[in-house]
Simulated assay, not measured.
Amino acid sequence: MPLPHTPAAAPIARTLVRAALTAFPRTEPGLGHDRPRPSPTDRDLAELLTAELVANAVEHTSPHAPLELVLEVLPTSLRVEVHDHDPTPLPGLTGAGSPEHRDPLSERGRGLSLVRELSSSAGCRTTELGKVVWFRLSLAPGSRTRVTRTSSREKEAG
């Protein structure tokens, strides 16, 4: 699906992801058995991570080059790809650009870390026309480790 190379691309992409996951079939074609629909949390996470990839492409690629969103809804996962025409790889998805190398006071630069940490897998590959930045999100119940926070008081008490 082509996206505008403007800040409006991220909300459009979120809407497309929500629509794809809301239309997720309950019955596996050809098998006839039910499977769970993606939870609201899975849908929200998929929207967030998609918006991060799209916003990154809008900000860091030529405004004259097209962007494309590709969604693949599989029985137990969602794969999201953002295609752009800039061949520069994104090392932040593979461990480089980790939080310890960033300015902790910066208001920018956390999007790819979110994608890397919250998705099942993520990466970047070059193509003849530029690159594809992608993530996979497991939609199976209990497939992700729950992220919890511990307050400083809890740490001191423990």
Rank of each mutant, 00 (worst) to 15 (best):
S138E: 12
L48R: 10
E81H: 01
K131S: 12
G95D: 07
A23T: 06
T88H: 13
A122I: 03
S106C: 07
T15L: 01
H101T: 15
S106D: 14
L21H: 07
D44Y: 02
P141E: 07
P7Q: 12
T22S: 10
P91M: 04
A51R: 05
L53H: 04
G30D: 01
L118H: 14
T150H: 13
L137G: 05
A157L: 15
V132H: 00
S119D: 06
R18W: 01
S138W: 02
S113Q: 11
D103S: 06
T148E: 06
G97T: 10
T88R: 14
A13M: 04
A10P: 00
A55D: 12
R79N: 00
L48V: 13
P25A: 09
S151V: 03
L71S: 08
A96W: 09
P66I: 03
A46H: 02
G30A: 06
A19F: 00
R144N: 07
P75D: 11
H60C: 01
P25I: 06
S138A: 14
A96V: 03
L48A: 14
E156G: 00
A8G: 05
V80E: 08
T6H: 13
E52F: 02
V133D: 15
L31K: 08
T88A: 14
V80D: 08
R35G: 05
